[in-house]
Computed example of a mutant assay.
Amino acid sequence: MIIQVSEDFPQSMISAREVEVLQLISMGYSNKEIASLLFISKLTVETHRKNMVKRMGFKNAYQLVVWAFKEKVFT
């Protein structure tokens, strides 16, 4: 799987790993599936998700995904 991030996206907002997690969330993968694909624990995936939602001031991961597409995080 190739994850491409838009060159215009400011990397200081979320880390490269968080972008990977975010893309898999947007593709409909569960936390367990994401953990397996990225070779990390399910708890780590949940932490990345929670940190991104909190940092961006959203209420849930759905808003995070909508924001990512609106801001053209992915190419």
Rank of each mutant, 00 (worst) to 15 (best):
N60E: 07
R55N: 07
R49A: 08
A68I: 02
N31C: 05
V66C: 06
L38E: 09
K70H: 06
D8S: 11
M1V: 06
S15N: 07
A68H: 09
H48G: 01
T75C: 11
E33C: 09
Q4S: 14
R17M: 06
T75R: 15
A61Q: 12
S41L: 03
S36I: 05
M13W: 11
P10V: 08
T44W: 03
R55P: 00
L43T: 13
V66R: 01
K32C: 12
R17T: 06
T44R: 07
S12E: 14
S15P: 11
S15A: 09
F58A: 00
S15I: 05
H48I: 02
V5D: 12
D8F: 15
Q11M: 13
M27T: 10
D8R: 09
F58G: 03
E46K: 05
I40D: 09
V45F: 03
M56H: 07
K42T: 02
R55W: 01
I40V: 15
I3D: 12
V21F: 05
K54Q: 15
S12M: 13
K70Q: 12
K70T: 07
D8Y: 09
N51H: 02
Q11H: 12
A35C: 07
K54V: 14
K50P: 03
N51S: 11
A68C: 00
K72D: 14
S30N: 11
I40P: 04
K72V: 07
V5K: 13
A61D: 14
V53H: 11
I34P: 01
V53Y: 10
F58E: 00
I2N: 10
S6F: 09
I14E: 12
F9G: 08
S30Q: 06
V21E: 06
M56T: 12
N31W: 04
F69P: 07
I25Q: 04
M27S: 02
F9W: 14
A35K: 10
T44F: 03
E7L: 13
Y29L: 14
R55Q: 03
S12V: 11
F39V: 09
R49K: 15
N60K: 01
H48A: 14
S41K: 05
M1Y: 08
G28N: 11
N31G: 05
M27P: 01
F39K: 10
A61K: 13
V19L: 10
F74S: 10
F74P: 12
K54W: 11
Y62T: 13
Q63W: 03
A68Q: 05
V21L: 11
K42V: 01
R49S: 15
T47I: 01
F74T: 13
Q63H: 08
E71V: 11
M27A: 01
K42Y: 06
D8C: 08
I3S: 09
F58L: 05
K54C: 02
S30D: 07
R49F: 09
K59Q: 09
W67P: 04
S36G: 06
E7I: 14
G28W: 15
E71W: 15
N60C: 05
N60L: 03
A61C: 09
V45C: 02
I40F: 13
M56E: 08
Q4I: 12
E46S: 15
A16C: 07
